[in-house]
Write a protein that binds this DNA or RNA. Sequence first.
DNA 1: AGGAGCTTGTGATATCTTTCACGTGGCAAA
DNA 2: TTTGCCACGTGAAAGATATCACAAGCTCCT
Lengths: 231, 231
Amino acid sequence: MPGTPRVKAPQMAIRRLSMYYRTLAVLREQGVASVSSEHLSTLTGSTAAQVRRDLAYFGSFGRRGVGYDVESLQSHMRGILGIGEGWPMALVGVGNLGSALLAYDGFPRQGFRIVEAFDSDPRRVGTVIRDVVVKPMDQVRETVRERRIAMALLAVPAKAAQAVTEQLIDAGVRCLLNFAPISLKVPSHVYLASVDLSIEVEYLSYLLRESRAEDSASNDIRTDVTTMMPL
Amino acid sequence: MPGTPRVKAPQMAIRRLSMYYRTLAVLREQGVASVSSEHLSTLTGSTAAQVRRDLAYFGSFGRRGVGYDVESLQSHMRGILGIGEGWPMALVGVGNLGSALLAYDGFPRQGFRIVEAFDSDPRRVGTVIRDVVVKPMDQVRETVRERRIAMALLAVPAKAAQAVTEQLIDAGVRCLLNFAPISLKVPSHVYLASVDLSIEVEYLSYLLRESRAEDSASNDIRTDVTTMMPL
DNA sequence: AGGAGCTTGTGATATCTTTCACGTGGCAAA
DNA sequence: TTTGCCACGTGAAAGATATCACAAGCTCCT
Ligand SMILES: NC(=O)c1ccc[n+]([C@@H]2O[C@H](COP(=O)([O-])OP(=O)(O)OC[C@H]3O[C@@H](n4cnc5c(N)ncnc54)[C@H](O)[C@@H]3O)[C@@H](O)[C@H]2O)c1
Ligand SMILES: NC(=O)c1ccc[n+]([C@@H]2O[C@H](COP(=O)([O-])OP(=O)(O)OC[C@H]3O[C@@H](n4cnc5c(N)ncnc54)[C@H](O)[C@@H]3O)[C@@H](O)[C@H]2O)c1
C-alpha cells in the first residue's frame, strides 16, 4: 500500500469511494487506461478536489501531471472496500422485498452473495430462490455460526426487526443492513446501515414543498427567508 | 405558524424529522400526550440537543419546562414534510424491485401512493398489481402530465436509468427516487435521491475490514447510519 | 537539457454541522 | 405569591467536512 491514512476518513468519503469504484469499472470496460480527478469527478457528480481528497485519505494512488491508472486505482478501491472477498451474507425475511434482494444480481457482481435466507413463516420455509433454500428462524444461530456469516440483510416487518437483530448479533453477525422503517439499537461493535424509503420520499416531498413555497414568495408574508447567514 | 426558519436546515436535519415524525406516531398510538427532547432523542438514537436544534430550524413547537405536545408536534412535522397530501407517484420498471415497491404498504401509510406504473417489456404491460395497471413507456408523458405526477420511483436497470430519467423530467416530474446503481444527471430544478445498495454494503464491508485490521481501540459508538448522497 | 504544460497531494481556509451551556419561560405545590 | 424545578430555544464554541490554491512531480517537446 502506497500510503497510510493520516486522519479518519469521513463517512461520506467512504461512500463516495464506492461510486469511484463503480465508475472505474465502467472506464475499464471502455478500455480507458488513465483518468484524472477532473474526469472522475464529472462522471460521479463530485468535484475534482473532492475526489483527490477522498483518495488521499487512503494513500497516494495517482501520478502528478498524469492522473490515475484506472486498473490500479480500481484494484486499490477494491481492497479498501473489501470487494471481491466473497463475503457471504444472510437474508432474514423473504417477503416482497426479501425475494427481490435474493434475485438481485448486483450483489454477486460486487462480490457479495446471499448464501442463506430465513423466514418465520412456515409457508416460506423450504422454498428455493436462486439456489438458496429458505430456512426456519430456529436455524439462524447454528447456520450463521457455522458459515461464519458476518453480514446480514434485514427485510422483516418493523415490529419484528429489533428482535431479529438481536438474534443475528447473538449468532455472530457484525454488520447489518436494515430495510425496516425503524431505528435499531445495536451494541457498539456491530455496524448498522439503514435504507429507509420513508425518509427518502419525505425528504423529496419536503424539497418539493419548499421550492413551491419559494416560488410563491412574492405573495407571501414571509420576508425573512433569505435574510441572514450567521456572521 | 410559531416561527420561521432563520437559516437553511441541514439535509440531515430534514431526514431526522422523518424519524421524529414516525416516533411521534408511535407515541400517539401509545396514548403519550407529551414528550421531551430527551425522550425523543433516546427513541430515535439522536441527542436531546440535536432534537431541539432540528426542530428549531422550523419554529418553536415546544413549551419550556414541559416538552412537546405529541399531537401538535406530529402535525407540524406532517406539514413540513408534506405528508398526507396524497402525493401521487409513478413507478418505472416493474421487475423484481418494482413489484416489491408496488406491494409496499409503507408508502400509502405515509400518504404517498404509486398510482401509475410503466415498463418497456410488453410482457409486463397490462399486468395488474395492487390495482395499478402497468402501462407501456410511450404513455409516460401523457399520463404523468395528465395526473400531475411530481414524484417518480426509478427501478429500471442502470443502463436505462438516464434515458428514463430524461423522459420523466420531460413529462414534468420534479422529484426522483432512484434505485439503479448509477449517478444520474438531472437539471437543477429536479430533486434526486438515490438508494444505492452497493454503497451501503461496501460501506459496511469497509467498516468490518477496518475493525479487523486495527482490531485495537475502536470506540465507535454507532447507533444508526442512514443514507445520504448529495446531488 | 530545459521549459511548457499538466495533474496530483496537501496545507490553509471557508463552510457546514453538532454540541455545549445557560437564559428564559413555564408549571406545580406550598 | 413565592419557591423550586424543569425543559425549551439559542448564542457561542467545537468539531467535521469541503473547497481553494499552489508547490511538487511527471511527461513531452524542442
Ligand atoms: N416491499 C418493499 O418494497 C419495501 C421497501 C422498503 C422497505 N420495506 C420494508 O422491508 C420489510 C419487509 O417488507 P416486505 O414488503 O418484504 O414485507 P413482507 O410482509 O412481504 O415480508 C416480510 C417477511 O418477513 C417474515 N417475517 C415476519 N416476522 C418475522 C420474524 N420475526 N422473523 C423472521 N421473518 C419474519 C414474513 O414471514 C415475511 O415473509 C418491512 O419492514 C418493510 O417496511 C419494504
Ligand atoms: N432487485 C433488487 O433487490 C434491487 C435492489 C437494489 C437495486 N436494484 C436496482 O433496481 C433496478 C431494477 O432491479 P430489478 O431487480 O427489479 O431488475 P429487473 O430486471 O427485475 O427489472 C427491471 C425492469 O425494468 C424494465 N425496463 C428495462 N428497461 C426499461 C426501460 N428503458 N424503460 C422502462 N422499463 C424498463 C424491465 O422490463 C424490467 O421489468 C436495477 O437498476 C437494480 O440494480 C434492485
